[in-house]
């Protein structure tokens, strides 16, 4: 776990809440977990790269996606049209932008890519393997349930890595010298 992690958790939560408030006119409520009905769902994901790299994803059932985009466009939509797919992609785009603005205050930056949206059945969110960190938050907006994940890893500053290596080398030499001096 790194120092930026708690800030990212907060930034993601705030960004989702702010996005719901401004796009839908209703704030999102953070939930402990989301129970998805046994129905097809939509996952829209957007990658980013920079000091921090990874991706944001939104996970929402088909019926909830229709309700959410209906509120966005103030019209009734009851099937997953291209507007629904597009609307969910726009939602994750805006959420990613919100996190980007918030982490700029921490001198961190990244560039956002173009969203990819997939639709299917019985999909589950899995954490990425390797050194990536995983944040998963669940929200409810007027009983519309959605989950948002942020999977990321930090890019270490090359200068900082070199300095850390040099310091470790120095420490090792001092320890070795101390051992030799003690023996003598």
């Amino acid at each position: 776990m790194n120092l930026i992690h708690p800030f990212l958790v907060e930034a993601l939560g705030e960004s989702v809440n702010n996005s719901c408030q401004t796009i839908l006119g209703i704030p999102g409520t953070l939930k402990d977990k989301t129970i998805f009905p046994e129905e097809p769902c939509i996952i829209s994901s957007i990658g980013f790269t920079g000091n921090i790299e990874g991706n944001f994803s939104i996970y929402i059932s088909d019926s909830n996606a229709c309700r959410l985009v209906s509120k966005m466009l103030q019209t009734e939509i009851d099937e997953t049209t291209t507007d629904v797919i597009d609307g969910i992609a726009e939602m994750i785009n805006v959420i990613a932008g919100g996190v980007k603005m918030r982490i700029a205050q921490q001198k961190q930056t990244f560039n956002i890519s173009i969203p990819t949206t997939i639709k299917g059945s019985r999909m589950v969110i899995l954490a990425s393997t390797g050194k990536a960190e995983n944040i998963c938050l669940h929200f409810s907006v007027e009983n519309i349930c959605l989950s948002v994940t942020l999977i990321y890893k930090m890019h270490e500053d090359k200068k900082a890595v070199e300095e850390r290596k040099a310091q470790a080398h120095l420490d090792a030499m001092q320890t070795l010298n101390a051992l030799i001096n003690n023996k003598n």
């Binding site: 401004t22 785009n93 932008g97 919100g98 980007k100 603005m101 700029a104």
Partner: peptide, 29 residues
């Protein structure tokens, strides 16, 4: 009208087009 709402991006846009009349960061009301 964009998610690119950081100060450096706004400056980049102003440099690209001096007649930039406004900058709205998404999400917006």
């Amino acid at each position: 009208v964009t998610t690119e709402g950081t100060a450096d991006k706004i400056a980049e846009a102003k440099a690209a087009n001096p007649n930039l009349a406004g900058y709205i960061a998404k999400p917006f009301t």
